[in-house]
C-alpha cells in the first residue's frame, strides 16, 4: 500500500504547488508533512503508529472509565428509579385498595343508618297513630256517656213535664167543670177519670 501512496504523492505534488507558491512549497512540505508520505493522509503509513499508540492509550482509559465508573453509575440510577417507581406504584395500589374499602364501609354505614332512621320514623308514626286512636276512642266513649246522661236527663225532664201537664189538665178540667156546673169535684175523682180517658 505504501508504494501506491508514494506514487500518488509524486503524481499529485505538481497539482498542489501552484496554490501555495512554487518556491517555498517543497521545503514546507518536507518539514511539516514529516516524511512526505502522500497526498492522501489516511493512507500514509507514517501516520499509522502515532495514531495507534494514542488510540490505544485514550480508548483504553475511556474503556476503564466507562466500565468502572460511568456504566455502573447509570445502571444503578436506572435500577434505583425502577425500584422506586415499583414501590411507589405498589404503595399507591395499597392506598387505593384502602380508599375503596373505606368507601365501601362508608356506603354500608350510610345504608344502615338510613334503614335505622326509616325504622325510627315508622315506629314514631305508628306510635303517634295508636296514641291518637286511643285518645279518640276514649273521647268517643266519654262523649257517648255524656250523651246518654243528657238523654236520661231529657227523658226525666220530659216525664216531669208530662206529669205536670196531667196535674194542670186535671186542675183545668176541675175548674172548667166548677165554672160550668158549679159543683166541686174532688181532685181524686178527676185524676181517676183522667187516667181512664188516657188509658182508652
Amino acid at each position: 500500500m505504501a508504494n501506491i501512496v508514494l506514487a500518488a504523492a509524486e503524481e499529485a505534488a505538481p497539482h498542489e504547488s501552484p496554490a501555495h507558491g512554487a518556491t517555498s512549497h517543497g521545503a514546507t512540505q518536507g518539514t511539516v508533512e514529516h516524511h512526505g508520505g502522500g497526498d492522501f493522509p489516511p493512507f500514509d503509513v507514517n501516520n499509522f503508529t502515532p495514531q495507534l499508540v494514542w488510540l490505544a492509550l485514550i480508548f483504553g482509559m475511556l474503556y476503564v472509565l466507562m466500565s468502572r465508573v460511568a456504566l455502573p453509575r447509570i445502571g444503578s440510577i436506572l435500577s434505583e428509579r425502577e425500584s422506586r417507581i415499583e414501590s411507589d406504584l405498589s404503595a399507591s395500589r395499597e392506598l387505593q385498595a384502602k380508599a375503596q374499602a373505606a368507601a365501601a364501609e362508608h356506603d354500608e354505614t350510610l345504608r344502615a343508618t338510613k334503614a335505622q332512621a326509616q325504622g325510627i320514623g315508622r315506629d314514631a308514626q305508628q306510635q303517634a297513630a295508636s296514641e291518637t286512636q286511643a285518645r279518640r276512642s276514649a273521647q268517643e266513649a266519654d262523649f257517648a256517656k255524656k250523651l246518654a246522661e243528657a238523654d236520661a236527663q231529657i227523658a226525666a225532664a220530659k216525664a216531669q213535664a208530662l206529669a205536670h201537664i196531667e196535674e194542670i189538665a186535671t186542675e183545668a178540667a176541675g175548674s172548667i167543670l166548677e165554672k160550668l156546673t158549679g159543683a166541686r169535684i174532688a181532685a181524686e175523682t178527676l185524676r181517676g177519670e183522667f187516667k181512664t180517658v188516657k188509658a182508652s
Partner: peptide, 22 residues
C-alpha cells in the same frame, strides 16, 4: 508517538464521552 491533531481529537471525544456519562 507524536501528539497529533488526531490524538487531540481522541482526547476531545473521550472528554465529551466522560462529560456526558460521568
Amino acid at each position: 508517538v507524536s501528539f497529533t491533531n488526531s490524538s487531540l481529537f481522541m482526547l476531545l471525544a473521550a472528554l465529551a464521552a466522560v462529560l456526558l456519562t460521568i
